[in-house]
């Protein structure tokens, strides 16, 4: 079959087409976030072999398996320390961590706060679907209070993390939040984050109709409507006021973009003072 260039998807060169179809469920938002990430990579103009993607375990953790660059699907929660090793050994690489809320903030929470504290120059994209999708919808560190899950059948007694607030308190120097519906804003934001020197964090709200929506009487389109109608773009919003409450309106935008020496810059300056 001869290829008609018009029929080639603009992101195809960044996708392992021999691994398609992907495993993501109908109505899942991870694919949209993934597409925004690839678009952002293209927008930077940086050659693809100067990127590496690292994922942990979970639905969005499969991202590393579909991108056609050097990519690593590691153990549950450990994408960030793996990425840290890459960055320490090869500071010129652009290292992207693409993973989920369960992976990055429960089992991997400690690594997140320490990489942010160090201002490790990596970009962390968290697909936040408020639940453990891969394992069937258990309660997560991001599940809203009172929401139902397969391990909180009456409702979640716990309080979720506000991820951008946690990132801010930990020392991240670029922080943003979007929903997967805001595909262009998200791609532009990821592009900014990739170019930003320092620890960048982007939370992306993304639906899991199969394992979260179903238990919480939220149809796939209802979630998208909330993303559209009940969100407010407020760049520079106070990180302490970013809890996810659709009644008040969920705040999106860029909350931090701070110029501060990165870990590798500081290491180089202190340990190799004579080098340019």
């Amino acid at each position: 079959m001869t290829e008609n260039p018009q029929n080639v998807h603009p992101l195809e060169d960044l996708v392992r087409m021999d691994r398609i179809p992907h495993i993501w469920c109908p109505g899942c938002g991870t694919g949209s976030v993934f597409a925004s990430c690839l678009t952002a990579m293209k927008q930077t103009g940086i050659p693809y072999n100067q990127f590496a993607m690292v994922s942990g375990i979970g639905c969005s953790g499969r991202g590393a398996g579909y991108i056609n660059i050097d990519s690593f699907h590691t153990t549950h929660g450990r994408a960030i320390p793996f990425a840290t090793g890459i960055k320490m050994a090869s500071p010129d690489l652009n290292v992207i961590v693409f993973s989920g809320d369960g992976d990055l903030f429960a089992i991997g929470g400690n690594h997140f706060i320490h990489a942010a504290r160090r201002n490790m120059d990596i970009t962390v994209i968290c697909v936040n679907n408020l639940t453990y999708g891969m394992t069937g919808g258990q309660v997560a560190a991001t599940t809203p209070h009172l929401a139902k899950s397969s391990t909180t059948t009456v409702g979640n007694p716990e309080t979720p993390f506000s991820l951008p607030f946690l990132a801010y308190a930990s020392g991240a120097t670029y922080i943003a939040r979007w929903t997967m519906l805001h595909a262009r804003d998200l791609a532009d934001s990821i592009e900014e984050a990739l170019v930003h020197k320092g620890f960048s964090f982007i939370e992306v709200l993304s639906p899991c109709p199969v394992n979260f929506g179903r238990r919480n009487k939220e149809k796939p389109l209802d979630t998208l409507k909330k993303y559209y109608e009940n969100t407010i773009v407020r760049n520079g919003a106070n990180p302490a006021e970013l809890d996810i409450d659709y009644k008040k309106g969920v705040i999106l935008g860029k909350f931090a973009d701070i110029d501060k020496p990165t870990h590798d810059e500081k290491y180089k300056k202190m340990y190799w003072p004579d080098e340019k």
């Binding site: 590691t74 960055k87 090869s90 690594h111 320490h114």
Partner: peptide, 26 residues
């Protein structure tokens, strides 16, 4: 070469794998 003191041994062990894939001994 570079050294980093990680936040725990899980991270230490994982970091040496990431670094190894850049082509160096860890």
């Amino acid at each position: 070469g570079t050294f980093i003191q990680m936040e725990d041994e899980i991270a230490a062990m994982t970091s040496i794998l990431g670094a190894a894939w850049t082509g160096i001994k860890t």
